[in-house]
């Protein structure tokens, strides 16, 4: 049970990363850089394509991404492993977005330089605390919230993309990915994997196992 990433972005197109925190200690030293790039790339791609007010869950092998886009123009993204309870993951997003809205006004982040990030140290504490789902949701409510029925489930990242869009093109065009990470993506395409997260899996198989 692991939370890899919590990030806050704008839900405009193109989406901008406002702040992000990652725990990649379970990945090897040489993987971390690329994994981080891919998670950020995933976050912006998912934030742009999630409708306002919509919650979506993107599953890919043993990794799961959760996205919620709120009416204020913000989107929250959480990436976990498959064991982490999805209801808790969505409640993390709610909590993080609420706290962020209390701290920053819309004008603070609306015209933020794409290269800059806002300082939000709470994210680090949350990421450490919420490794234990009991802390994110002390009651671990037995009943599944009714909200969850509205969650849109994507079995792969491809189903998130709009018509005519291809993940390959997005990866090639992206300036968030280093040439090394793009090279990894291409090699993983050859082994018939279609998604970046699967790609991270490839990383695991290549580096770790």
């Amino acid at each position: 049970m692991k939370v890899y990433n919590i990030s806050i972005l704008t839900n405009s197109a193109p989406s901008k990363l406002i702040c992000a925190e990652q725990d990649l200690s379970s990945f090897g030293f040489f993987q971390r850089g690329s994994v981080q790039e891919f998670i950020n790339f995933f976050s912006t791609t998912a934030a742009e394509r999630t409708q306002v007010g919509e919650r979506s869950k993107i599953e890919q092998q043993s990794y799961v991404g959760y996205v919620y886009s709120n009416p204020n123009g913000l989107a929250g993204v959480v990436v976990t492993d498959a064991e982490y309870p999805s209801r808790v993951a969505f409640s993390i997003i709610n909590k993080v977005l609420d706290d962020f809205t209390l701290k920053y006004k819309k004008s603070d982040w609306e015209n933020l330089d794409p290269k800059k990030r806002l300082d939000f140290p709470e994210l680090k504490t949350y990421l450490a605390d919420f490794q234990d789902p009991h802390k994110a949701d002390p009651f671990m409510k037995v009943q599944q919230e009714l909200d969850e029925t509205k969650v849109i489930l994507h079995k792969t990242m491809d189903s998130l993309l709009q018509r005519g869009e291809k993940l390959d093109d997005l990866v090639t065009k992206s300036d968030m990915l280093s040439s090394q990470s793009k090279m990894f993506y291409k090699t993983s395409k050859k082994t018939n994997s279609c998604c970046y997260l699967m790609h991270i899996d490839l990383f695991n198989s290549v580096f770790n196992r």
Binding site: F30, Q180, F184, T187, V206, F207, N208
Partner: peptide
């Protein structure tokens, strides 16, 4: 402290 295979 750590060892792994890298592509480059």
């Amino acid at each position: 402290i750590e060892v792994s295979f890298v592509p480059t």
